[in-house]
Structure formats: C-alpha cells, structure tokens
C-alpha cells in the first residue's frame, strides 16, 4: 500500500539547489575564515592545518568566496525568471512573493503577540516574516562580505583604486558581518528551523522540499486555505520520501549542523584568547 500523501510541497528542486549551494559554500567559508581569524590560537592553527596552514585556508576561502559571489550574480537572472511579468508589478506582491508586504508587518507583530499569549497565531501565507528576513539577510550579508572580501582579495591591486587604509575598514566590516552571519545561522536559524518542538530533532523540508500538511494548517493557515480555495491542495500533496533518502537527509543535514555547533562552541571558548585591539 502506498504511503499516504501527508506532506505539502513547499520548496521546488531549484530552491533546494540554491540552498544546498549556499549552505556548502557558507560552511566552507566559515571553517576557513574562522581558522584564519583564530590563527593566533592553538585551535585556529589546527583548523587551518586541515587546509595545509594559513595560506591554504586563505586560498580556499578566496576561491570559495568567488564561487559564492558568482552564485549570487547567477541568482539575479533567476529572480527575473521567477517574476510573473504579465501581471508585473502587482505580481511582486502576490502571496508566493518574497517581497516584504504590509501583511508581513502585521504578521511580525501578530507573532510577538502570540509568543506573549495575547492573540492567536496569525494565519501566515507560504512564507512567514522570518523566512523573508532570512532570504533578504543573505542579500545584504553577501553584499557586505562580498564587497569587502573582493577588496581584501588582492590588497595591492585594491590600493591602486582607493587608499590603502580602506583595507583597515574592509577587514573589520568583513569580520563583523561574518560573525553576525555565522552567529545567526548557528543559533537562531538552527533553532527556528530544526529545534523548535514542532520540528525537533530535524526538519528535512529544505532537502525533500515538503512540510507536513498538519503543521502547515497551523503555521501557514492562509496558504493552505488559499490552495484549498483554488482547488490545488490535492495536487500539492505528496507522500513522504523513502526511508533511505530520509536517512541520507538526516545524516547529511546533521553533519552540517554539528559542524556549525562545533565552530560556534570553539569560537566562543577561544574568543578570550583572541587579540582584537
């Protein structure tokens, strides 16, 4: 007997590919960047040793950064492809759009009210305000680390086009934005997406592309209602992926999560050994 179609399609294969690319490059850049940042500590030198010392770590970091910037540039034509040009510009504000809308502001304050027990959970559409924040945070984050990273890529060449002291500024901006990004992903993103009681211990949504319909009725009520109203809900339901695939998602996902936690824990415990000023 085939398994019941209990899961709602949420992410397309292309969405998942973007996330996978970003995730792998982000972790590579995190490991090599943290190794370089903590190079004065024993732990940092060991981490850099995995790449053959600081030069290797820095080289991998630079190449990884260029690939990530290339992916970001490639994402722009993809966005243009996603836009519904026939109904443009109104389509930018449709329910599937990641553009911030008035509904998101209401959804944000409604969420705070719900957390403090003042009101019911707002009926969210496909993307909650936190999902949109995460999406756009990648944009501003990558713009900041990308521009400063390119400046630091070849300091001698950069200083032909701007004063060399801009590199003092660039390094600190790069560093703070990187700490912000890693800190946010390894604490807030992991908790919200994987460790909240509804998702614990692991939410494979970004890997299999689905979420349980039961959960969607609660967390994305407006989305499910819209699909039902348009008579598209049945077509959007799928059975859970086969068990071997679920095991693969779990093992792969958790190795990434544990790597993030490892970096976070050791960075925090070694932070006192770091000379910043």
């Amino acid at each position: 007997m085939p398994e019941q179609r209990t899961r709602l399609k949420r992410f397309t294969p292309v969405h998942r590919l973007w996330h996978l690319t970003l995730m792998l490059l982000f972790m590579l850049l995190s490991v090599t960047g943290v190794a370089w940042m903590f190079y004065e500590t024993q732990w940092g030198r060991e981490l850099a040793g995995l790449f053959g010392g600081y030069q290797g770590a820095l080289e991998v970091h630079k190449i990884g950064g260029l690939v990530l910037l290339a992916a970001l540039l490639l994402h722009i034509p993809y966005l243009f492809y996603c836009i519904d040009w026939k109904k443009f510009p109104g389509s930018l504000l449709n329910a599937n759009s990641l553009v911030f809308q008035w509904e998101d502001i209401k959804g944000f304050f409604g969420h705070i009210g719900w957390v403090f027990g003042l009101n019911d959970l707002p009926k969210y559409e496909r993307w909650g305000w936190w999902a949109k924040f995460d999406y756009w945070a990648v944009w501003w984050g990558l713009t900041i680390v990308g521009v400063t990273g390119l400046m630091l890529y070849d300091p001698v060449l950069t200083s032909d086009y701007m004063p060399g002291w801009m590199l003092n500024v660039a390094l600190w901006v790069h560093r703070i934005e990187a700490v912000l990004a890693m800190g946010h992903i390894f604490t807030v993103h992991f908790t919200v997406e994987h460790w909240r009681p509804g998702n614990f211990p692991f939410n494979a949504g970004m890997f299999d592309g689905t979420m349980p319909l039961e959960e969607a009725r609660h967390d994305h009520a407006a989305w499910v209602a819209r699909l039902e109203g348009e008579g598209r809900l049945d077509a959007a339901l799928v059975a859970p992926p086969p068990v071997p695939l679920r095991i693969l998602y779990f093992v792969f996902g958790y190795s990434i999560i544990l790597l993030g936690i490892y970096l976070l824990v050791f960075a925090v415990t070694n932070a006192a050994l770091l000379t910043l000023f």
Binding site: P155, V156, S159, D160, M162, P163, G164, W165, L167, N168
Partner: peptide, 13 residues
C-alpha cells in the same frame, strides 16, 4: 613581502 606595493597601499595602518 607585498610585491608591487604603492604609496596608497602603504597608507594601510
């Protein structure tokens, strides 16, 4: 160490 360093480069603190 920094081959090709210019005066601008040397203004790095």
């Amino acid at each position: 160490c920094h081959e090709g360093a210019s005066p601008s480069f040397a203004s790095y603190m």
